[in-house]
Amino acid sequence: MKDFLKLIIGNGLNEFPYIADFLDSYGLVLRDDDYEKSFFSYFNSLDEDILEDKGINIEILKEQFLQFMIAMESSVEADSDVEYITILGGYNKFGEKEDIELCIKKGEVVSIVGPTGSGKSRLLADIEWIAQGDTPTRRHILVNGKLPDKKRRFSIDHKLVAQLSQNMNFVMDLTVEEFIKMHAESRLVESVEEKVSIIINEANKLAGEKFLPDTPITSLSGGQSRALMIADTAILSKSPIVLIDEIENAGIDRKKALELLIKEEKIVLMATHDPILALMGDRRIVIKNGGIHKVIDVTEKEKSNLDYLQELDNKLLELRNKIRQGETLESI
């Protein structure tokens, strides 16, 4: 292992800019002459009393620093690509065996359907946790046909599932640009500025009403927020699986949204009962009594109805716009 404590602070900060976050999180402010010191001698030069106030001491600080560097290095490491996941059946609420071995590939869209409380969330949780027969359903999840590395379970950088929930709010007081930039920096991606502008651009293609980079995120409409988060998740999130909890019809082009996720090679799982979304997918997993009841392949015949459904949908959208423009609906 590299001895990071021997690093000269100035060089360290150049090579690993995230060290600044570490120092900041302990309230450590560097003076000009500190930059030429090694981390080892800098930490040793700190006042124990001041550190104790912050709830730390020199030895622990050194240890935390080393742990931090190791953790950050491993999060920069390239992920082994997830090509497909396999769900091996377990048991439903009544102890009946799920007779299933379901393989879902990159770029595939699968809907999960079933009444509330039927076990949709458990299935998604099993996938997120990479269940190994150790959850109530006793399902097994394989990645690329194999038992995945256990560290995936606990590592926030190797999370399998990114979740886009329905009732999603922003709590930060930032503009769209600042917000996406902050996310990009936390993901340690390269060319942050470029990524940020791509995301805002893509989000605007999905959103019914356009927004600007300097729009505060808290003033985005529901549709704009969802558009921004879908573009952000498609482009920034490292998680290979995107779980969407219903995409509301209002203010977002759902077809383009799915296309973007597919283009970015995500595995898309949607908990939805919307006929259009369900037909845009390749398959539907039907959940009943806590178990996978069956898997329906979306047939050509079903798909052929998509145009008709979309026509209906566009009609409604048109009427919605009329209302928005202050027109009447006397002739529709």
Partner: peptide
């Protein structure tokens, strides 16, 4: 209740 980005 927060977005995926904020969670990350």
């Amino acid at each position: 209740i927060v977005s995926q980005a904020e969670r990350e």
